[in-house]
Design a protein around this nucleic acid. Structure first.
Lengths: 144, 144
DNA sequence: CGGGACTTTAAATCGATTCTAAAATGACCT
DNA sequence: AGGTCATTTTAGAATCGATTTAAAGTCCCG
């Protein structure tokens, strides 16, 4: 009866994912990985994830959360999204998509790539190659 | 023979612009305004502008540069561009356009709005209105 | 179980930005 | 011109998110 969500990554797929990524499945990485990868895609800041882990009874330092988020990102399990100066978001959705950013709440929401189109990209400056295209749709409460 | 540039904003248009924006034309704001608004459009960080001002013999504190950049932005004379966590760029081009961001050099370059198209925007989440759409094309040297 | 490489950690540090409260300045009035 | 007062600037301290440090802890292999 699968208590909740779309999730359904089988029993501790997290450990397998970590190993595949060349990361030792330590207690902390497993706990953070479960919070991040079991269930829906997520957008988190290091602080948020840290609070969440502790709230869930996992003892983990903020530095470790930063380390893990960067390691997961380097391993291609997540990606970093920059929307606000001075704060980093990490996104568990590594597929092709873009974002709504709610300026008041600081909340990010995915825009599936088939719901937006970027056309007619100019050629990259000489000597450079395009690494990624980010589209941020900034929204605010309608009574601004 | 007009020594350089497209500039040609007439004699101290900067003062008029400041007044129109409701900002007192102080020595510092005028000097920064000239660096920013006379000549081509620019992308600067606070530190860069501060260094440039001092190099030009203008005595101004970093805090004042930050103040001025925010005031100019609030007044609609500039806009802030977020491309890297932990660093703010300010852009003198307030028109509709997007950006190339060169990841190695930290350099920003405009993409005129007619050279890019964003279509099929999904509707904003309920209760919200779109404030802006930012497209960042991240490029790096082609031999990555 | 034992050893060594990899991890985690608390604490110190960093760079960017903001805040503070005091000193300086600009604009208005007469 | 001079006086006045709100606005602005400033140096320095403080804050913020993030990273680094070096020491303590853990994981994995035989």
């Amino acid at each position: 009866m699968m208590s909740n969500s779309v999730s359904a990554r089988p029993y501790s797929g997290v450990i397998a994912r970590l190993k595949t990524a060349g990361l030792r499945p330590t207690r902390q990485r497993i706990a953070l990985g479960k919070l991040l990868f079991e269930g829906e895609n997520r957008h988190v800041t290091a602080e948020e994830l840290h609070d969440e882990a502790r709230a869930a009874g996992v003892s983990v330092s903020l530095a470790t959360v930063y380390n893990a988020l960067h390691q997961f990102t380097d391993a291609g399990l997540m990606r970093e999204v920059v929307v606000e100066a001075g704060r980093s978001y990490f996104d568990t959705n590594t597929g092709d998509h873009h974002h709504f950013f709610h300026e008041e709440s600081g909340h990010l929401e995915d825009i599936p790539s088939d719901q937006i189109r970027v056309d007619a990209l100019p050629t990259a400056p000489a000597g450079t190659a395009v690494r990624r295209v980010d589209v941020i749709v900034r929204v605010g409460s309608s009574d601004s």
